[in-house]
């Protein structure tokens, strides 16, 4: 038996599952090979340590909790329970549909129809002033409106 075969057989040897003939060869090799002997010793110590992880007993008696859950699951639903479903589900469905509609439908444009046509320099000045106001404490940052303004400024600047 060479080192490779011996090391592949360590697990079976530790479990006492190596056939008798192979066991003799295995032990002969281990007796003359300190590396394989070390591997065997390491595996034995690890397996012994693993066995110590088994927990001797559960910290609590599980039956009372299990019984409670079983009883709760088996308890028949009250006669009026069929009324609860439509009452609970209908508003939930309406709310879900409304939320979906808000996601799908386009938001109305924030730019007023009669928005004055200004030059690019005027716009830049306006936006600068707007941003300055936004940095003030308690100012109401009209983010959507500012974004549209910036967009229009770019269009006009590019168009110049």
């Amino acid at each position: 038996m060479n080192c490779g075969k011996v090391q592949a057989s360590i697990s079976d040897y530790v479990d006492g599952r190596l056939p008798e003939r192979e066991t003799l060869e295995f032990e002969k090799h281990i007796g003359s090979c300190p590396i394989c002997a070390g591997e065997l010793d390491e595996t034995r110590r690890m397996v012994s340590a693993l066995r110590s992880l088994a927990v001797p007993r559960s910290p609590v008696d599980l039956w009372p909790q299990v019984r409670e859950s079983i009883q709760a699951a088996e308890r028949p639903a009250p006669a009026w329970s069929f009324l609860v479903r439509p009452v609970l589900i209908a508003p939930a469905a309406i709310a879900a549909a409304a939320a979906a509609a808000m996601l799908i439908l386009p938001l109305p444009k924030q730019v007023p129809e009669n928005f004055p046509a200004l030059s690019a320099s005027e716009y830049r000045g306006y936006v600068t002033e707007h941003l300055r106001f936004q940095k003030r404490p308690f100012a109401d940052p009209d983010v959507v409106f500012t974004a549209v303004e910036l967009d229009r400024t770019n269009i006009r600047t590019n168009g110049e």
Binding site: V55, D61, L62, V66
Partner: peptide, 11 residues
């Protein structure tokens, strides 16, 4: 059955 196996299952 719960009392018999709870320790092993918990482990």
């Amino acid at each position: 059955l719960v009392n018999k196996y709870q320790d092993r299952i918990y482990s």
